[in-house]
Design a protein around this nucleic acid. Structure first.
Lengths: 352, 352
DNA sequence: CTGAAAGCGCTTACAG
DNA sequence: CTGAAAGCGCTTACAG
């Protein structure tokens, strides 16, 4: 029936192009799709006309017709922190290379994520990539059973047919423990994040278990936020301890805590003279002159590479087998855990 | 004619919902849109059925029908550097609040941008936000004349009906000059970026003009990249100068250069004893203990706020008038230039 | 309150 | 090589 033409945009359609080019509408479709026979001359004419009147094929209509939108949903959260901006860069690059368009869903907080995943469904995307919050099993099932792929970064997908990659935080924690024990350290402290922070909790757990398995004991300081400020407060608390009580080995579950701790003890406690310090994440600043922090690098390219490989597989795209010499393991939860890499700098003693 | 049903996804439609709910397809549409009469009972029944069989309205089809897709295109580039991730966070949050979906276009390099703007057109978005590369006047015209809005951040839009906000880099440079001159400094050096970097070039220009207008002279060192490393190399070059040739006032056109310079001179040249140093951008690290860099903060929230206000206006959304006490000026190019804010820390002498 | 039907802007067999 | 027409999955007056 009578449709309100959008008043603002005098919406040009392929019919308009067809009219001025003196061809059928079907032909302008063929001129742009490259599918179906069309003589080079008419094609050129049509392209010219379209250019002149400023028409571009309507991707929305095309997607409805073909039943396939070249879209992928990306669920993310605050970019001003941590690894997300970095990973997002990698990911957007790959998505672009596939000629897909990323539709972003930005979560204010982790509880938002399930709602966003719901909105995701309306856009009939090829799949969804999740790098924030938790995925409920029901939601995962809805996505997968709709034929979409589901890929998650640094969190479990809670579905057997989804794909999850994560840093092996637990193993990283264990590696940190080994390193500090091998240095001859005896009194261990972990500067940890909130208990419900997946990464931080696993790093802590891996560290603590490894230390305890050697018969040593550890103290854990949980922080509400994993920030420089929190790290500094830990330093103040550290100086509040009597000398003989002070740990000589500190594992911070992320670099921000570690760097803040360093600034907090600067000039009062020598590192690594009085204590060894290990961080996690390898922030850019960790390599800078005043810090030179020994830390773990998350294998981000490796993880993104694996995810990209999985998605290509799902899209039936021809590709080489994924080969990587980087160590990894498959968890009971189906997550591919990639080993973080230790970056030895000056806050631990040089290994002989 | 016969359509190939997508083999993978046994695409559920509103007809399927209608069938099992025993109503017409039109009614399921009404159940979800909230427009048109429908009894609460049938509505509830339909919603239940949809939930059961996992149907969500198809946003693509809806957009085709209504001639209006709740989409906005965002053109950006590498997020692992500078202010972009931060601004993107702000922006995504606002876009989400409007119930619009951001479609991301990621530019590998600035030359990509025009091509991406072209792709943008296919999605019939409400408008496009550009925070990377240059906008050609023809392209801007195509976007605007199609009824879309065009908003650009930290670059001119090259169209009278577009909206551009930017940091007032030139004025920032001039402020830097004033501050150093008022300190009594006499020998000026600017650590600048590539000549074709818009922000860096304007910061440099503002600084140099202000210094020259006072009858003093300046030397400029251009760097290919605005990185810590480049800053360190500048420090080495600085130490290569004879003592009496050494500048006593350094303006780096971004914080990375400044921080690298600080690390390069650390322990050899006192700051601010031997020289004053000013950066630009106020990176998180600039406030950290080993740096305490005096620098300029870009008024990012202010800029995003103005952009959001403009976009709301374009969308005919009711809102309060934009009021801000922050100083700004409208350039001849139509760009709204917002004054950066100086953050005094310890690399300049305290003002009396 | 509900349904039948026209229409959105495209793509794609099919017939010429 | 080209066009007429059916169809994609919806929304929306219109008639009941």
């Amino acid at each position: 029936m009578v449709q309100n033409k959008n008043k603002e945009s005098n919406s040009v359609t392929s019919h308009d192009v067809a009219r001025v080019a003196n061809v059928s509408q079907a032909l302008v479709s063929r001129a742009f799709s490259g599918k179906g026979r069309i003589s080079p001359e008419t094609r050129a004419r049509i392209l010219k006309v379209a250019e002149d009147i400023g028409w571009h094929p309507n991707a929305l209509a095309r997607s409805v017709v073909t039943g396939d939108a070249p879209l992928v949903a990306v669920v993310t959260a605050r970019l001003n922190f941590d690894w997300r901006a970095q990973v997002l860069s990698h990911l957007l690059k790959s998505i672009q290379a596939w000629h897909l368009k990323p539709l972003l869903f930005y979560a204010e907080n982790d509880d938002d994520v399930d709602r966003l995943l719901g909105e995701t469904m309306e856009w009939r995307t090829r799949g969804v990539i999740v790098m924030a919050g938790d995925i409920r099993a029901r939601r995962a099932e809805a996505i997968i059973s709709g034929g979409q792929f589901l890929a998650t970064l640094n969190r479990p997908a809670n579905h057997p047919d989804a794909f999850s990659v994560a840093t092996d935080n637990q193993q990283g924690g264990a590696m940190a423990a080994s390193l500090l024990v091998d240095e001859g350290r005896r009194k261990f402290l972990v500067l940890s994040g909130p208990q419900n922070n997946w990464a931080s909790a696993l790093r802590t757990q891996g560290f603590v278990e490894a230390i305890r398995s050697r018969g040593e004991s550890v103290i854990i300081w949980h922080n509400e936020a994993m920030t420089m400020e929190a790290g500094k407060e830990c330093a103040a608390a550290f100086h509040g301890l009597r000398h003989h009580e002070r740990p000589d080995a500190v594992f911070a579950t992320d670099d921000a805590l570690a760097l803040g701790f360093m600034d907090g003890v600067r000039g009062q406690t020598g590192i690594p003279a009085d204590l060894s310090l290990l961080g996690f994440d390898n922030l850019a600043a960790s390599s800078w002159l005043p810090y030179q922090l020994t830390t773990f690098e998350q294998p981000l390219s490796e993880m993104v590479g694996r995810m990209v490989h999985y998605i290509n597989l799902h899209q039936n795209r021809p590709q080489d087998a994924f080969c990587s010499t980087s160590p990894h393991r498959i968890g009971e939860d189906g997550v591919v855990y990639c080993l973080p890499k230790i970056i030895q700098r000056s806050t631990t003693k040089p290994t002989p």
